[in-house]
Design a protein around this nucleic acid. Structure first.
Lengths: 200, 200
DNA sequence: TACCTTTGCTTAACGGTGTTAAATTATTTA
DNA sequence: TAAATAATTTAACACCGTTAAGCAAAGGTA
């Protein structure tokens, strides 16, 4: 019977609907308030139905993560194919990575575990800016007076922080393999002295 | 009556106990499974008591975050004070930042919103390594054959990713100020071409 | 057509969460 | 000792993820 296929197609569809509804909710209210019951509401079913398509809530997040990586791969390949020299291709790929992260904020967050807990708290508490200020001031000390524009210092500060925080994030999200720790510390030291030397 | 002060001291103490218990639980079972009832269990009270010391669960996290930044500041200052030249001081401060992150993993996670969701999933799903492989291969292309050791390519790959992912994380956790977007993109491009040029 | 079986879906429930209000116990004060 | 206040617990609410039981419609079979 051909109705079997129609039903199969409908099932495919609600599977997609579940994923889309999830992403919609996250876009509207953030990862924290994504719940099975809200997803069910959005697809006009009750919660237990979802378990016929996904083993549990984590499985939904995992599938979204997977699709995120597939999408990212596609966009990076596309960016790369617009150039011929490897150097240009590599730069294009990283720019595509960057663009993907902001065009698909929610996906990137679940893919790389970037949370944003306490944005409001951050501005209301002076202690939090302590380390930032210390580093900012020290960088300012290093920059010759004639180049001490806020923009230049800001650029250097962000470059520093990106490298260090990025390396830390990578090492924290992946389980630490003892063997690569030395490499990471080497990357860190190289990067830091590299940036310091770039300050003029 | 001096008993007033003693009681005040006891209250101070359970406040500290709540924070310590929270951190203990997180160290043992992770942020996800930190609950008011578990904290209460650990300090040998019932859950509602906690609300006399903290407005809600978020307030506990915020206080831990604050204390994290205070501790980080102290350690960075200490590191800095061991040197005299600004360049050495700056490097020491970043190394202190690095060391803090791994010596106080849980604090760093709540301070900077670094989650580790799906470590197990990551290894079980090939799609996830797509982008990583693409970049790895492209970097390999750029490295002259005589320098194509795994360690060298790994170093470059991590350096790239650190910069880009770090910048993205920073821009995501802080609310995006439109004005600094240009600076960030400039940092990104500078960093990428800097690393590309450093490949030999 | 009548019966049985399968399917799709919902309701109800369990144990957990953060949080609040009421009740209870202990302590201090008059 | 009695009243007032403080400290703490119990009970409850609304939510969460998840599972088991129940029901109603559809399909197949005699």
């Amino acid at each position: 019977m051909a109705s079997k296929e129609r039903i199969q197609r409908l099932k495919e569809e609600t599977r997609v609907n579940i994923l889309e509804a999830s992403l919609d909710i996250v876009k509207e209210e953030g990862w924290q308030s994504l719940s099975m019951r809200k997803i069910a509401d959005k697809i006009e079913y009750t919660a237990p139905i979802i378990y016929e398509y996904f083993a549990n809530k984590d499985a939904i997040l995992n599938e979204l993560t997977r699709q995120g990586f597939v999408k990212l791969s596609r966009q990076m390949e596309e960016a790369s194919s617009a150039h011929t020299s490897p150097a240009e291709q590599l730069e294009a790929m990283w720019l595509a990575y960057w663009n993907f992260a902001f065009a698909n904020k929610e996906l990137y967050q679940v893919m790389y575990g970037v949370e944003m807990n306490c944005c409001t708290f951050e501005n209301s508490c002076p202690d939090i800016q302590g380390p930032a200020n210390m580093l900012w001031d020290k960088i300012t000390e290093l920059v010759p007076k004639e180049n001490q524009t806020e923009e230049y210092i800001c650029t250097k500060y962000y470059t520093f922080w990106s490298v260090v925080h990025g390396l830390i994030s990578i090492n924290m999200t992946r389980q630490t393999r003892q063997s690569t720790d030395d490499i990471n510390k080497q990357v860190l030291k190289d990067a830091i002295s590299g940036i310091i030397n770039s300050i003029k």
